[in-house]
Simulated scan of single mutants.
Amino acid sequence: MKRPTMKDVAQAAGVSLMTVSRVVSHNPGVSPDTVAKVEQAVRKLGYQRNVNARNLRQKRLGTATIGLVVDDLANPFYALMARSIEDEAHRRGCVVLVGSTNDEPRREREVIAAFTARQVDGLVLVPTIGSHGFLRTAMASGTHVVCVDRPAEDLDVDTVTVDNRDGARHAVAHLLGHGHSRIAYLGDRYEIWTQRERYAGYLDALSARGLSADPALVRHGLRSHLETRLALAELRALPDPPTALFSSNDLITLGALDAMDGPDDPDGSRTAGQPLPMAIVGFDDLPLAKQLDPPLTVVSQDPVAVGSTAANLLFSRIAGDRSAPRKVVLLTRLVERRSGERPGHRTDHRPGPPTAPR
């Protein structure tokens, strides 16, 4: 059966081809009665707009789709970032395909291969660890790439990040300023660029106070609530436990809060709702941070600004911008709410030089 065309719709509605085009493109200037006639003809004929044909007429030669590849869409930061990118795409009549990698290079390649096979016009990519030179083939075929949250190894493309190191430094300096010197660090995999930057900021803040990191207070590689709970239990069982905690991302923060929202000792001497056993500052804000008891002090980065900046760079490239790759670094801010302001006890504890991550 022949697929109905815009010309068929115009004949059925008794209007010009230009009028049909304006109605299906949602352009203003068409009377409500005429819009109703055209829409009735569209429904009756089963007409569907041919986006690829429209792109060809506009010499875009694209598919009006882009791909977004993130670590974990369940992460609140990436969810908000994805929505921001989707909003930018929607304004341009584009669709966003989304895939998660769980920070696994093999899975990342599979998702990217699936997207490029669908001839997406571009990719917004949160890179996993390892070389990304393999993307040059897709780029040579016309797929534009913008990296977000982290730079990609072996690939010179537009990149949007935040100042992770400075944000972490401010967080730990804040805890030091409230009298804490035994400050624990809970982090994701050290191989991830953002985690290395945040750990460096942790060390910077300690060093500025003449302190060295105590390896007993540092935990890397935490990828689940269970791992975070176990790490926190180990820290609290130390002969000289930490009085404060810096958490390197929102999922680890949630795991730490969950672990602290219960009995402090095996005999159940602390119950849910009592004050947290240590001060805590987390990197990344949380939707319910203000409603926690106490409200959560965080290093806040703006996922909406990160996403919209990356999307605008990508659409600029798709539109023909061939200037040198840009490196955009957005600022963070420390949001003081109370969980990081619990006073500690100043000590002269100096446990020795930093060691390699665990």
Rank of each mutant, 00 (worst) to 15 (best):
V98W: 11
H345W: 04
P303W: 04
P32G: 09
H170D: 12
V30E: 03
P275T: 06
M139K: 05
P354E: 03
G62R: 05
R165D: 00
G67P: 02
R333N: 14
D8I: 03
H90C: 12
A53K: 09
V329A: 12
S31L: 08
P351M: 11
V304H: 09
N27M: 15
A168R: 00
F283W: 07
A205E: 00
I183W: 02
G167D: 04
N164D: 15
V218P: 01
K37Q: 13
T137H: 14
H349F: 15
K44V: 12
L235V: 08
K59F: 07
V51I: 15
F115C: 03
K7G: 06
V145T: 03
V111M: 00
N75R: 02
P263E: 09
S131K: 12
A200H: 07
V30F: 01
N102C: 10
I85M: 10
V95K: 04
H225F: 14
T297N: 07
R198D: 07
D250H: 07
V306A: 01
A311Q: 11
A231S: 13
Q195W: 00
L222V: 10
V298A: 12
V51K: 04
P263H: 09
G130L: 10
V15N: 04
R270V: 10
V20G: 10
P266V: 11
Q274L: 09
G93H: 03
R322K: 14
P241S: 10
G201W: 01
G14M: 07
D214S: 05
A82C: 03
G201F: 06
L211A: 09
R350M: 09
A305E: 14
R198P: 06
D204G: 08
